[in-house]
Simulated scan of single mutants.
Amino acid sequence: MRPGPRNLITDVAGLRVGNAADSGLRSGATVLLGDAPFIAAVSVMGGAPGTRETDLLAPDKLVHGVDALVLSGGSAFGLDAASGVADGLRLMGRGFAVGVQRVPIVPGAILFDLLNGGAKDWAENPYKALGRAALAAAGAEFALGTAGAGFGAMTGRWKGGLGSASCVLENGVTVGALVAVNALGSVTVGEGRQFWAAPWELDGEFGGLGLPGAFPANAEPAPRKRMGEATTIAIVATDAALTKAQAQRMATAAQDGMARAIVPSHTPFDGDLVFAAATGAHELADPLADSFLLGHAAACCLARAIARAVYLARAMPGDLQPAWAG
């Protein structure tokens, strides 16, 4: 397993990512766009999720492919970012065909960043425009850290952010992860700077510090945020050909990566969620063995992406938390 050439989710061919943010608002949105509709699924393990159009991702539902996935700040207001993306896609002629009409399918998820010091006294919901701007910016390269849906994110200790990572398996399949980290828990061990995700780090991508010699295995953490103020939202993607059920299993397995990188994770106060996306370029040679590898790779990529989100976050005036990089 090695990183892809960009070490971004866009190493999965046919996928692009766009970010948009408002520094005064201290919030933003991120869109994962497919060159063509792709298979998608979702796994929700947090106790306080905020979502749009996730029911149709179940294996027994009619819609086979989606056009885009959206991650956004703004709590429930941020769900409107997906409306902006849908509007833009409709103008492109994209969407599920219903007679002469096209209905873009754009599931989304949000995190809570309403108490991060930004100006939230808007007269009109700003997230629809942020969604449109993120769609317009979609490309193979995109910013990490203080960017997009992670622009105003926080964690239990450090400033949060947007992260991504990728890997290429020996069978040629590519897996990638994209995540906005706004967790109740901490991504670093105790009071130190080492990342919980250190055992899965590749090529010193988040500092190469490793794990400390000892860590508080028996600690009983207390929540540093109030109920509803957290949530880590993520997407794992592959160029493998998967059914919706197989994609859902990959999303479920990727939740292990969240638990490896954030302690604690999946709390009653977080809305932790993982989407899965599959473009279908590579048929699985062995559906059982390859599905096993995909789940493991997705978990590893997500753990790495979470650490990179915090590692790359930058300090800004008015921050309520320190940036890991200072």
Rank of each mutant, 00 (worst) to 15 (best):
G65P: 05
D67L: 07
A68L: 07
V70P: 03
V70F: 03
L71D: 03
G74A: 07
G74F: 01
G74S: 08
L79F: 08
A82S: 14
A82Y: 07
G84Q: 02
A86V: 03
M92R: 15
G95I: 05
F96D: 05
A97W: 10
G99H: 12
V100Q: 15
R102M: 10
R102I: 08
R102A: 10
V103T: 10
P104W: 01
P107F: 00
A109D: 01
F112S: 00
D113I: 04
N116K: 08
N116Y: 05
G118T: 09
G118P: 07
G118Q: 09
K120D: 10
D121E: 13
W122M: 11
E124F: 12
N125A: 09
A129G: 12
L130G: 07
A134V: 06
A134F: 00
G139L: 11
G139I: 11
E141K: 14
A143N: 10
G145K: 02
G145R: 02
T146Y: 00
A147E: 00
A149D: 06
A149L: 09
A149H: 00
G152M: 02
G152R: 06
A153W: 00
A153H: 06
T155L: 06
T155K: 05
G156V: 02
W158T: 05
W158N: 00
K159W: 08
L162I: 09
G163T: 02
S164P: 04
S164K: 02
S166F: 04
C167H: 02
V168Y: 05
V168R: 12
L169N: 05
E170D: 15
